[in-house]
Simulated scan of single mutants.
Amino acid sequence: MQNRTALIAAPLLVLTYGLLRIVDGLDGVRGPGLAWTAGHLAFLGALTLFIPIFWEMRRMLGRSALATTALVAGVVGIGCAAAQFAIDIIVGFLAADHDAMGPMFEQVKAVPGVSLAVYGAGPILFYVAQLAFAALLAGNRLVKVWVPVAVLAEIVLSAVNLDLIPVGAILLLVSFLPLMGRPTTTARHAPVHA
């Protein structure tokens, strides 16, 4: 697979975010500050890297309708999650302390559609796309069945407790390992284009 660097860097950036998030909370509050900003920038970097990863997975699947749907959902989810993290960074810069962040977030969420698109359903599409691609790759025998299981575990762990993001990031890296050595091909049933 092309983009091997992205396959390694994206999970490592998620791991960095997860660890910095834990460090940021050691004093009992999260944000604003260096750990808050650096962690959020790391996750933004990871999100950016998922665009070529998803694009390549779609290509591996022969640009099928399901793979294209997963790509579109993934890119929309990335955009929504990136907006959330960008807002978090801006609020972190503008707020004098942690207590000042709450009212700023409430103002942002009060804008019609923002709460759903940026803090609700929108970012979920990113995780749905991760799982969809893993399942499609396994269904086309391009990866083993354990890969979508690892991706699902990564998503569930992070949803259950955000402090488990580092464990999820390691599972994500492990789920990408089979793709790193795989040459770029398309699914067996897909026509080959010159």
Rank of each mutant, 00 (worst) to 15 (best):
77 G>T: 10
63 R>S: 13
134 A>M: 13
53 I>C: 02
13 L>C: 06
85 F>T: 01
191 P>T: 00
7 L>S: 05
67 A>T: 01
48 T>Q: 05
164 L>T: 04
151 V>D: 07
97 D>W: 04
51 I>F: 08
42 A>T: 00
45 G>A: 09
120 G>M: 11
33 G>N: 06
72 V>L: 12
80 C>E: 05
102 G>K: 11
78 I>K: 05
66 L>E: 10
158 S>E: 15
161 N>Q: 15
176 F>N: 13
122 G>T: 13
140 N>I: 00
5 T>V: 13
165 I>P: 11
32 P>R: 07
137 L>A: 01
168 G>F: 03
171 L>I: 12
111 V>S: 00
105 F>D: 03
31 G>R: 04
63 R>L: 08
91 V>M: 04
75 V>G: 06
27 D>L: 01
177 L>N: 13
132 A>M: 11
34 L>Y: 05
19 L>V: 12
185 T>P: 03
110 A>Y: 03
187 A>G: 11
107 Q>H: 13
43 F>A: 10
175 S>Y: 04
109 K>D: 04
156 V>G: 03
7 L>H: 13
16 T>L: 12
144 K>V: 14
140 N>S: 12
170 I>Q: 00
161 N>P: 13
159 A>D: 11
123 P>W: 07
133 F>R: 06
164 L>R: 01
160 V>Q: 11
101 M>F: 06
20 L>C: 05
13 L>K: 09
145 V>K: 11
116 L>A: 15
128 V>D: 03
139 G>A: 00
172 L>V: 09
89 I>K: 09
164 L>E: 03
5 T>L: 14
18 G>N: 10
72 V>F: 09
156 V>C: 03
106 E>F: 02
186 T>R: 15
122 G>I: 13
155 I>W: 04
8 I>P: 10
36 W>F: 15
157 L>P: 14
100 A>C: 00
2 Q>T: 08
174 V>D: 09
112 P>L: 02
62 G>A: 00
27 D>I: 00
2 Q>M: 08
47 L>M: 10
159 A>I: 13
170 I>F: 00
146 W>Q: 14
188 R>A: 15
116 L>M: 15
95 A>P: 04
127 Y>I: 00
29 V>A: 07
43 F>Q: 14
123 P>Y: 08
150 A>S: 14
192 V>R: 02
77 G>H: 12
152 L>H: 10
113 G>S: 09
16 T>E: 04
43 F>G: 02
142 L>V: 03
52 P>K: 02
12 L>E: 11
113 G>Y: 04
85 F>Q: 09
181 G>T: 13
125 L>P: 15
60 M>S: 05
172 L>H: 14
